[in-house]
Design a protein around this nucleic acid. Structure first.
Lengths: 332, 332
DNA sequence: TTGTGGAATTGAACCGATTCACCACCAATA
DNA sequence: TATTGGTGGTGAATCGGTTCAATTCCACAA
């Protein structure tokens, strides 16, 4: 079988305590011993047993990441950020896709509890609650990802979605658009609620008319469905703002197929600024969010909370979204 | 703190062994004792400590997934498949990105060993070896993902990349292209080696001339770099085949910017058939792979190997790639 | 030479469930 | 009465790191 700490100690001619120190507090070991032990570790291919470590210390070095869907490029980027940051701190990441379903979310949370994760990073599937008391009770830290927390007893890392909605409409207004379609997802999603708020606010100020087209999922297929609905409207809007880029891609395809020129006849604006936006049939204007950065920051915050929980002060980090102008929006 | 097995034993007036039996082999305990112990367990709200249990038994319900980069839509789809299948069997999945670096791959494998995963699903970063003896020694099952195994002592789930390369060139040949650029990644990547083999084979049969443009990473930026090189060639090829869709997107952008029409002046063919191909400036023809299915199959195979390791017969599953014709390829 | 302080190292106890060789007890058989 | 067999139960050893009180070592000052 594989080597354990005692084997290393014997081979290197030191005690088990010293080997443990080499692993966890290298600074208290003399350089000479350190080097010798490390060499032995490498020779034996020794890897510490996580269970034993966790059993004694009571803590694991794993976190759970719960997102609606990694297949959405925005969350893929976030996930990469989380993973890179966690890996730097020697944490492993459990990946969970909630598919925007509360049921699946709960199922995964219970799996994560079973796995005794140290903390959970979650983009809630639902606009309500976010208490996660059952996790907290078990000493599992929770930080909200891409959602702002209502109570200040937890960390959150988010992007200002209200402002994002505002920026979008302001941009369209500045191009002279007054008649705007807002293609959006279910109101159970917190981000949707906020973006809608921003949209409404800016529209009121700029006296624009917003017609809402609601879809159930935020993917390309649903974007196509939305576009078909738009084509049936009595009066075509002069601009379409979509709650994410995937929806916008779907809309774009259907409109182009219908022979409608973008942006000449209709301006199209997305949200997320996923990297493919640039390669689209008409390069997509969008509202950009620092996805990777979001993931990194959230993971760092969560891990810092896990490691010095009494020192730790909860913080709510909020990034600002930015308009990225490409070819799909133009003045009326 | 919460009660442990010894507390239960003391309170119920039995030995720790008996309590353990109540938990794991109730049939060997007398009904009277059974009932009394179970009552005590309920009273104390005792929940067995997973770490200790796993430390002793040596098994967890987790698997590791190591891919080059989840941000590549192909692997995102694979990851979703793995995750869905694992979740169905009540396994949790560790996500690891090797970034096509052997060093990172090894680092992650050691993290996975620490976490005592039951099995590992891996797309090797390197064309060599794939032995993973260090994992096997520790009783960790390994299955190769999107790579065919050379030895039959392990499972693998792959797509026929040689055939994929062939199909691509055959398609271009059938359109009358004889002068083809092959934009490809490092030869350390197994898939690249195979696709190149297919390309070469089909080119020989069809008497096409292949000029190879090699890049170091398979992303959009490198595709752009490759296209710039192509623009500098003495004679433009009449078709370009890219080793994946991301490269093709980059190539497409640069060519269109340079005023070159696709497919009128140059045909462009990608690989992977990621969903955005359909939304691209010129809808991208591509070689399609069953990514989600690949992930599901691999996870199921791995878990079945983990759970009945002596019953289990290693198998090599090979899916067939398919040509998806869109607008970016046309006859010369 | 002795004393002192700090750094380096030691190793036994511990985390909590599992395992298994062994014991106690009772009934049935010789 | 002695022997055998079977059931129910016991508790010390074990898994493999981590921790920490105790010890050793060494340099430098008195």
């Amino acid at each position: 079988m594989s080597a354990n700490l005692r084997d290393v100690a014997k081979k290197a001619g030191v005690s088990v305590g010293t080997v443990s120190n080499v692993l966890n507090r290298p600074e208290v070991v003399s350089p000479k011993t350190l080097e010798r032990v490390q060499k032995t570790i490498a020779e034996l291919g020794f890897v510490p047993n996580g269970f034993a470590r966790q059993l004694r210390s009571g803590y694991s070095r794993t976190i759970g990441l719960v997102v609606p869907d990694v297949a959405n490029p925005f969350f893929t980027e976030v996930a990469r950020g989380v993973e890179d940051a966690a890996s730097k701190r020697n944490y492993a990441v459990f990946l969970c896709n909630s598919d925007e379903s509360l049921e699946k979310e709960n199922k995964y949370l219970s799996v994560l509890i079973q796995q005794q994760v140290r903390g959970v990073l979650i983009t809630p599937a639902d606009a309500q609650g976010h208490e996660y008391e059952n996790l907290r009770e078990r000493g599992i830290s929770v930080a909200l990802l891409d959602t702002e927390t209502k109570n200040s007893s937890q960390c959150s890392v988010s992007v200002d979605d209200v402002r994002g909605g505002e920026i979008a409409i302001e941009h369209l207004l500045s191009l002279g658009h007054k008649d705007i379609a807002w293609v959006t997802g279910p109101e159970t999603i917190p981000q949707i609620v906020d973006r809608t708020m921003g949209v409404t606010k800016a529209a009121k100020v700029g006296k624009a008319e917003i017609s809402t087209i609601r879809v159930t999922l935020m993917n390309v297929a649903q974007g196509e469905a939305a576009a078909k609905k738009i084509l049936l409207l009595k009066k075509m809007p002069s601009a379409i703002f979509c709650a994410n880029d995937l929806l916008a891609f779907g809309v774009m395809r259907v409109l182009l197929d219908a022979g409608i020129n973008i942006p000449e006849q209709v301006s199209l604006l997305g949200y997320d600024d996923i990297s493919f936006g640039n390669s689209a049939a008409v390069p997509l204007s969008s509202i950009s969010q620092p996805a990777y950065q979001l993931g990194v920051t959230a993971a760092e915050l969560l891990i810092s909370e896990c490691e010095d929980s009494e020192e730790h002060a909860h913080q709510q980090v909020k990034f600002q979204p930015q308009l990225v102008m490409r070819a799909s929006t133009a003045s009326k």
